[in-house]
């Protein structure tokens, strides 16, 4: 079946299987920053923004996304660079596999929460698992980023 998908501000008509998940469709369409980490909606590596809100692309039917707009890290490189500078400075991009997803969820958080506390940050981002860092460097980096943005 065919769907209309706006990927990173580009309108596309894409041929998909009815049972295909958004993750596969995005990877096939060049968004290789979107990672496959589990098969169960548990890790957050596949996070993308759907109409600006963070979702798990592995758990979202591509057909459901018909008519919607998807943002991946490829589409917001400048913004990603701004946030990631803090992550890189804190040494919290280790293997980096979880990072594109984390950055997108952070963007979602920026939109929704004003001046989040550390607990609120950790709660909002809790769906993004990271096995390398122990998370505390993420928190330091994101707090600093939000602080400096003010």
């Amino acid at each position: 079946m065919k769907i209309n998908l706006k990927i990173n501000n580009q309108d596309k008509i894409i041929d998909i299987r009815p049972d295909e998940m958004l993750l596969e469709v995005l990877r096939k369409n060049g968004c290789l920053s979107v990672k496959h980490g589990c098969d169960t909606g548990s890790c957050g590596a596949c996070t993308v923004l759907l109409d600006g809100k963070p979702i798990l692309s592995c758990s979202y039917f591509a057909a459901k996304a018909d008519g919607h707009s998807v943002t991946t890290v490829e589409g917001v490189q400048n913004k990603v660079e701004k946030i990631s500078k803090y992550l890189v400075d804190e040494g919290s991009v280790q293997c980096g596999f979880c990072v594109p997803g984390l950055v997108l969820t952070t963007m979602g958080m920026e939109k929704e929460l004003n001046n989040p506390t550390e607990d609120e940050i950790n709660h909002y981002l809790s769906g993004n698992l990271c096995r390398c860092t122990g998370y505390v460097s993420h928190t330091r980096a994101i707090k600093k980023y939000l602080e400096d943005k003010k």
Partner: peptide
């Protein structure tokens, strides 16, 4: 000295770098 990890920014920006990307 804590210099930034040399591949940190590229990975954060989602550059194709892992096996399945290649």
């Amino acid at each position: 000295k804590s210099i930034p990890k040399i591949d940190g920014m590229g990975l954060a920006k989602g550059k194709p770098a892992f096996t399945d990307d290649l």
